[in-house]
Design a protein around this nucleic acid. Structure first.
Ligand SMILES: NC(=O)c1ccc[n+]([C@@H]2O[C@H](COP(=O)([O-])OP(=O)(O)OC[C@H]3O[C@@H](n4cnc5c(N)ncnc54)[C@H](O)[C@@H]3O)[C@@H](O)[C@H]2O)c1
Ligand SMILES: NC(=O)c1ccc[n+]([C@@H]2O[C@H](COP(=O)([O-])OP(=O)(O)OC[C@H]3O[C@@H](n4cnc5c(N)ncnc54)[C@H](O)[C@@H]3O)[C@@H](O)[C@H]2O)c1
Lengths: 208, 208
DNA sequence: AGCATATTGTGAAATATTTCACAAGCCAAA
DNA sequence: TTTGGCTTGTGAAATATTTCACAATATGCT
């Protein structure tokens, strides 16, 4: 298991390199990648070498092979079915985002417990109630869920989702969620991001 | 300047402690906080001691004083004006989110260059064109901007925003943005989050 | 007051991550 | 085929971050 920071960088390298490939490039050096991302070439090499891939000294990395390896390690070769739990403002913005589909993430299940929404369609997918959530997830063999319900409801829907076989979660609710061993949950906490900015602004103000 | 990871944790401690305060608690120990967040008590103490605040041995931290210090260090005592640039699906979901206002972030300027949107109101705020963006930002003395325009437009609007005095940015466009020294930009990259999940799922699949 | 128990604050150790620095290898041009 | 200019891969050094471990001290009970 590569460490978290390395994976995040590899994902970005992959994007940058795909861009270069689209522009017709065949080779890329650690310095090129580093420049595009304001990292050190040394870090880029260290990260790439953790894939096992070997570049060519004096030349750099073969873009096609490198992308292959990255996609394979990052699990981007096949599509992933995703469940969206909570079809509110944020959830709907996410479902409609074409970028996800482009990267291979297909929404196969939308859950909401608002009677007004249940039965309606969003981006062509029927909104289903949270009744029997675990079974619904299990039936479709979905492993990834995006959680966009209010904080109070989050732990509960996660528990059902996990019971149904969800292994990977992306949680937007601003609350700590407990998941069993072997289940991975990531947090996107937009208020935390804003507060980080506030800290930085405040620090600046105080120190000059 | 506290390191990034410490600030992120402090923000979360602050939240947890405010919760406890609302429940009537007066004191909290590093162990309590650590348990709520699955961290070590030692880390919590180290983080809090970086504020300069002193707890009471044998007892813990006085919640009221600790929140005071946290709010003061994190810059949460006064409100912050925010500009939202790009009033599309994601931008509108963010503007409407009551959590931001609750945490003291007030949207004072909405920018979009879609003629259909310019002049209309979102959450009571008029949408303005991106013409003269720098001046608009400067006139309202806004220091924080949230970027939710398409990737292609992002660098350009950021340049204008920074020219107008923006110092802190939260960028949702999946593209590396260059900002001058002294300006802080954070990225929220939702596709990256999904790809992280894909990596983890893939790793699991391959290694068992 | 004395004792038992709890919890902080912090050097020092342990880990983790990043960067340095350079031998080794590749390529093109002469 | 030799030379010079690049660039990789990677030990080792440098940094950064986290955890350990325990003296210092607060509180409550007898
Ligand atoms: N909108 C934002 O910009 C934003 C920003 C930061 C954080 N968040 C967080 O993201 C989450 C969603 O935000 P939102 O703005 O979309 O809220 P929202 O109220 O618009 O949407 C929440 C949706 O979840 C549904 N829901 C509630 N309980 C449910 C349950 N038990 N099972 C299934 N569905 C349920 C509701 O019917 C609603 O449709 C919240 O936790 C919020 O704090 C949102
Ligand atoms: N919606 C999502 O869930 C999601 C997820 C991940 C990333 N993103 C990223 O967030 C950004 C916004 O996404 P979205 O779904 O809201 O897109 P969107 O197309 O709905 O909205 C973009 C808005 O920006 C406006 N705009 C374009 N150029 C502009 C300019 N130069 N100045 C001012 N306004 C301009 C458009 O008129 C539009 O209203 C994109 O970069 C997208 O890649 C969105």
């Amino acid at each position: 298991m590569l460490n978290k920071a390395t994976v995040e960088r590899l994902i970005i390298y992959n994007r940058v390199i795909k861009e270069l490939k689209a522009q017709g490039e065949k080779w890329v050096t650690s310095t090129d990648i580093a420049r595009a991302l304001s990292k050190t070439p040394s870090q880029v090499r260290r990260d790439i070498s953790s894939l096992g891939r070997k570049g060519k000294r004096g030349v750099g990395y073969n873009i096609k092979k490198l992308i292959n390896d990255l996609d394979s390690v990052l699990g981007l070769n096949d599509e992933h079915c995703v469940a969206l739990i909570g079809a509110g403002n944020l959830g709907r913005a996410l479902i409609g985002y074409p970028g996800f589909k482009r990267e291979g993430f297909i929404c196969r299940l939308i859950i909401d417990n608002d009677p007004e929404k249940i039965g309606s369609k969003i981006s062509g997918i029927k909104v289903e109630s949270s009744e029997g959530l675990a079974k619904k997830v299990a039936r479709k063999k979905i492993a990834i869920a995006v959680i966009t319900v209010p904080a109070e409801a989050a732990q509960k829907v996660v528990d059902s989702a996990v019971a149904g076989g969800i292994k990977e979660l992306l949680n937007f609710a601003p609350v700590k969620i407990y998941v069993p061993e072997g289940v991975n949950i990531r947090y996107v906490d937009l208020a935390l991001e804003m507060e980080n900015l506030a800290y930085s602004l405040n620090y600046r103000k105080k120190n000059k």
